[in-house]
Amino acid sequence: MRVLGIETSCDETGVAVYDSAAGLLAHRLHSQIDLHARYGGVVPELASRDHVRRLVPLIEEVAGESGTPLTRLDGIAYTEGPGLAGALLVGASVANALGMALGKPVVGIHHLEGHLLSPLLADPRPDFPFVALLVSGGHSQIHEVEGVGRYRLIGDTLDDAAGEAFDKTATLLGLPYPGGPALAALAVSGRAGVVTLPRPMIDSGDLMMSFSGLKTAVRTLVRKRQAAGTLDARAKADIAAEFQCAVVDVLIAKAVAALDETGASRLVVAGGVGANRDLRERLHAEASRRGARVHFPDLAFCTDNGAMIALAGAMRLEHAKEGDGAFTVRPRWDLASLGAA
């Protein structure tokens, strides 16, 4: 089955062609980072405006690169939610209209299901069941994944997502938008432990997380240093390193606890924070020490992308029925409400 995947839930336009037999054939991503930078964050209306300009050219590119005339597609998958309503509607409109014109089935995909399944794009792909640590700007969740559509949320953040904490902390340190990657880059030159930050809920005895207190601790530290006139480049780098270390400590502790609780031997990491090098290295080391395997999606598929939507679509379309073209988007959508494929 050959599927076109379309992702427009936030600030990346992602399009890909995935074939269940041959794997990923082509993928393209247009990031809007430059567009939103001077606004200090994603402006939903501008994101939607960009998606509607980029989407068709990207579809034409992946069709050409994959050698797939659109009529050769077996189906179309798009992100139905959660995400920004206006942005989601762009992908939903184009995908459903295209499906109707081609006479091909169309399926709406849960964005987080795309992320949870994205490690299946890698070679070798992890077998079910596995534990998935989903860490991005919008989510910090741990799922027990038994198969397509069979997800049990076993850990979550009580407040900020890990990626959100990275971005907000970066702003406190005066780093440019988007702050997360900039903070990780700064942390490389800093020394963890020179200043001390808390590891929130690391000993809570469950799989819940909290990152807003950590951000507040950084704010207090930054103000103190500013008042004392000691917030120089070196101090900022040290704070960044300690902050990153604290987040990674918590994520590793929770991931290990999730493996213990479920008895799973495979851990999958997905979402934008999964691109963090420190997290990757330390999680690899910790997992191999315990005889578990850890799978990361390729860096390109950690952030939002069309490939994961095409993949999830291929898995779900095997069982899809043709509809009447009525479509909707779900800006809020509980992953646990999904059925098995």
């Binding site: 939607s48 405006r49 509607v52 989407l55 068709v56 579809i59 034409e60 659109l70 309503a85 206006g86 509607l89 762009v90 939903a92 409109s93 184009v94 995908a95 459903n96 209209a97 295209l98 499906g99 109707m100 014109a101 081609l102």
Partner: peptide, 16 residues
């Protein structure tokens, strides 16, 4: 949002 839905549908139908 309305004009983008009309535009997206026109794009999708025309492309297909």
């Amino acid at each position: 949002t309305g004009v983008r839905i009309a535009c997206g549908i026109a794009q999708g139908l025309a492309l297909g």
